[in-house]
Amino acid sequence: MASTACFIIVSRNDNPIYEAEVGSAVKKEEAAHQHQFILHAALDIVQDIAWNTNAMFLKAVDRFNDLVVSVYVTAGHTRFMLLHDSRNDDGIKSFFQEVHELYIKILFNPLYLPGSRIMSSQFDTKVRALARKYL
């Protein structure tokens, strides 16, 4: 498991709709905004890359010092972004794919408005479990 990992889902209009610190390291107060900064900036790169490939998993698109941003773009242009410090492409890919399934289930919910914040605690626990499994 990565010592630092921040997972975030960004809706198609660039708002974060789900955030989770899934790293094993102790969460630091100032890390939260740093992670947001890095991930937010990486959106620019994603924008460049996403339209040049057919793959959903874009691998590592951006880095900041020793932190790497891996991105997975769904068909609806929702972006799953993972900030991590370990290199484990296969694990990250499986993680993204499973989270995608969970996300689709969220979308199935008729009460969920696409693009709104994902408040489901079940989703949260499942994502964290996946993170423990794959990262």
């Binding site: 900064f37 890095i38 937010h40 900036a41 990486a42 959106l43 620019d44 790169i45």
Partner: peptide, 18 residues
């Protein structure tokens, strides 16, 4: 530089400014 790049990469711009 990020601002002047085409298309402008505003988020990078902001991040580097910070």
């Amino acid at each position: 530089c990020y601002l002047f790049s085409n298309p402008p990469m505003l988020r990078k711009y902001g991040f580097h400014l910070v």
